[in-house]
Simulated scan of single mutants.
Amino acid sequence: MELPPLLLGASLVLLCFAGLTRSLTITSVDQSTFEKAQGEKVTLPCTFELSEEDEGPLDIEWVLIPADNQKKEQIIIMYSVDRVYNHYYAALTGRMQFTNLDPRSGDGSLDILNLKAADTGTYQCKVKKAPGVQSRKIQLTVFVKPARTKCSIEGSQEIGKDVTLKCVSQEGSPLLSYDWKRVSGTQNLPATSILNKNTGELLLKNASREYSGTYSCVASNRVGTDECSVELNVTPPINTAGIIVGAIIGTVLGLSVLCSIIFCLCKKHKEKKYEKEVHHDIREDVPPPKSRSSTARSYIGSNRSSLGSMSPSNMEGYTKTPYSQVPSEDFERAPAQTPSFAPSKYDIEHKTGDITVV
């Protein structure tokens, strides 16, 4: 009996479906997206079942599919002929391994340790055992927790002024969200405050003394949080005019003192210079020299006295004494002005009384 065409087609579809169910199948289909924090561990599932028709050697490959479709897939780890090959991808070397030490048991899941932001990507598990071939893709996103969050104050902290509290995390994957809270006093933000969760800025308009206190900022993303705080102290306006006058007076006084010091130093320097010049010309500790003219006169007078007492017998030797050797510069320089006292023959005879003048 010949079957109608419709029933014949349905029978062929059922036979084909029955054949597919008997081939290799991947059973881990519960989760295809994972979000983890940097430094954590992730297990990418890849469990499978074999059929009686799958008689070839078992091969399990994990590949990283690049975001750019123009690039080739990168094998990161492989199990083939009862051996594990894990040296294909240097970025994950030492940080990845099969979850089950014997993948032939039907578990080809992959563990990645100490996750990094660069590990983000699409991973694909391929299981081959001829004639069966199956694969499954998993999206992994590695987030960086907020870290090194810093709080600061921008603007004047005076009554009536607008002041902005800022909060920024040096590390952290987007999108980061910031939230401010007051941890002292009423613990409620002022009524005039405006918060921007994306930038972390809290604007306090027309600040008053009641706004003073400790404020805390919490930065967060999908995998963690970080916190910082700042102390706000709203004070009365500063007397700017008084500060300016004080600064001017202080500057004038400082310049006056400086000028006085410079003047004293210059005066002292001149006095020292003058003392050195005087000391070089005339030494105060040396007594003044005796009069040279007096020395010459006393010397000549003493010679005259000696001549008056000499006799003719000893005159001969005395007359040989050179009078030019008198120690007087004045006497040597002006001989014409000094009278010659050399004894004459007349004087000798007159004084002795033995010789008569002719």
Score class of each variant (00 low, 15 high):
residue 4 P to A: 14
residue 4 P to K: 14
residue 9 G to I: 14
residue 10 A to L: 15
residue 13 V to M: 12
residue 31 Q to G: 08
residue 44 L to Q: 02
residue 65 I to D: 01
residue 66 P to H: 07
residue 71 K to E: 13
residue 72 K to D: 13
residue 79 Y to K: 06
residue 85 Y to D: 11
residue 104 R to L: 07
residue 123 Y to M: 05
residue 124 Q to Y: 02
residue 125 C to D: 02
residue 127 V to R: 03
residue 131 P to S: 06
residue 133 V to H: 04
residue 138 I to N: 00
residue 141 T to K: 08
residue 149 T to M: 01
residue 152 S to A: 13
residue 154 E to T: 13
residue 155 G to W: 01
residue 156 S to E: 11
residue 157 Q to F: 00
residue 161 K to N: 11
residue 174 P to R: 10
residue 179 D to R: 09
residue 189 L to Y: 03
residue 190 P to V: 04
residue 191 A to L: 14
residue 199 T to A: 07
residue 199 T to K: 08
residue 210 E to I: 08
residue 213 G to F: 06
residue 220 S to V: 00
residue 223 V to N: 04
residue 226 D to I: 03
residue 241 A to S: 11
residue 252 V to T: 11
residue 255 L to M: 13
residue 257 V to E: 03
residue 258 L to D: 02
residue 262 I to K: 09
residue 266 C to I: 14
residue 267 K to A: 10
residue 272 K to A: 10
residue 273 K to N: 10
residue 279 H to N: 15
residue 287 P to L: 07
residue 289 P to E: 08
residue 298 S to D: 13
residue 299 Y to M: 09
residue 300 I to A: 05
residue 322 P to M: 07
residue 324 S to L: 15
residue 331 F to S: 01
residue 334 A to D: 14
residue 344 S to D: 10
residue 348 I to W: 06
residue 358 V to F: 11
